[in-house]
């Protein structure tokens, strides 16, 4: 009798416990409960979809000059949608026609492809270099740490965009150089984040354990410390993609980034900036595209931080 009661107690004690929940799973659960994060993810989902299927979505080639190919086409004419009263005998231009007789909608669509590419590549370059520098600095410490971090401090001391402009002026204008310039100036941010994580992680007991069983420093750094230091980096990188896109757009606006006729949002804005009163749609749509994209990445980054940062846990 008494034994049975013991078992039942044991059972009642055990049943409410769910199977052990991993940190990533918990983070995901927290993540999907935030509305802003979901919106961010939706925006980026649409963006990725647009980028992948651009050739099927865009009605025209983004660099095709329609003058002479399309009857009665007007330079900088506004959006023409049959649904909203545009005469059905006129071809549709969802966002209008730009100053060089190209379909703006197709250009904005292809611009999504370019912007995503810019965001990911730029951030990948700076994360790769930043993580390596930050991890080494934090793990090795001593004078190595000092040298690396002081050099990065120098980079950090310059205004972000100004240094990028200086680098692009040295390398020559062009999309790849603009991306490289932005990548270089964002290295310190990643290096600092990862160094801070490594500094705290290397004092953990599992590191001591790994050292005790005779693992080498590289194995400890890459096998044990970095995986545990990575969550702030994910947040930083996601936010960084948005920043990178807007900075490259800024460089393109100044004529240092994408070269014509590449459909890049920043250069599209720049090309039609003087028509802001006479043909506002030409600056509105590319501007809106930049804004939505950056908003998407920022919302996603904020959501990730809320989900991943243990200090913010409720």
């Amino acid at each position: 009798m008494s034994s049975t009661s013991t078992t039942t107690t044991a059972v009642t004690l055990v049943t409410p416990m769910r199977p052990a929940e991993g940190p990533w799973r918990r983070a995901w659960r927290q993540f999907i409960h935030q509305r802003s994060a979901i919106i961010g993810m939706a925006i980026i989902g649409v963006l990725v979809f647009t980028a992948i299927f651009a050739p099927w979505i865009a009605p025209f080639d983004p660099t095709e000059v329609l003058l002479g190919k399309e009857e009665g086409i007007q330079k900088r004419s506004g959006p023409c949608l049959h649904l909203f009263g545009c005469p059905p005998d006129r071809p549709q231009h969802i966002m209008g026609v730009d100053g060089n007789f190209r379909d703006l909608f197709s250009r904005v669509i292809y611009g999504a492809r370019l912007s995503l590419f810019i965001g990911f590549v730029t951030v990948s370059i700076s994360v790769a270099i930043g993580v390596l520098l930050g991890a080494v600095a934090g793990f090795v410490g001593g004078w190595v740490d000092n040298v690396i971090m002081r050099v990065l401090d120098v980079v950090l001391a310059f205004p972000f965009l100004l240094l990028a402009i200086a680098i692009v002026s040295v390398l020559g204008p062009g999309l790849l150089n603009a991306m490289l310039g932005i990548a270089i100036v964002s290295i310190p941010a990643y290096a600092r984040v990862i160094r801070a994580s490594v500094l705290s992680a290397r004092e953990e007991e599992y590191v001591l354990a790994a050292r005790t069983i005779g693992l080498g420093p590289l194995a400890i750094l890459f096998g044990h410390i970095l995986p545990n230091a990575i969550s702030p980096l994910i947040v930083q990188a996601t936010l960084g993609i948005g920043t990178a896109i807007i900075e490259v757009a800024a460089l393109s606006f100044l004529g240092l980034g994408a070269q014509p006729p590449t459909p890049e949002w920043g250069s599209m804005l720049s090309a039609e900036r003087n028509q802001v009163f006479t043909a506002p749609h030409l600056v509105f749509f590319p501007g809106l595209a930049i804004m939505l994209t950056v908003l998407g990445f920022n919302l996603l980054g904020d959501g990730l931080r809320d989900a991943l940062d243990p200090r913010l846990k409720v």
Binding site: V151, V154, V155, V170, L171, G172, G174, I184
Partner: peptide, 17 residues
Amino acid sequence: DTPVRRQAPVVAMLLTL
């Protein structure tokens, strides 16, 4: 501009200094 690009990080570091 290929040769320049290859040395970009070096150039950037030097530049900052």
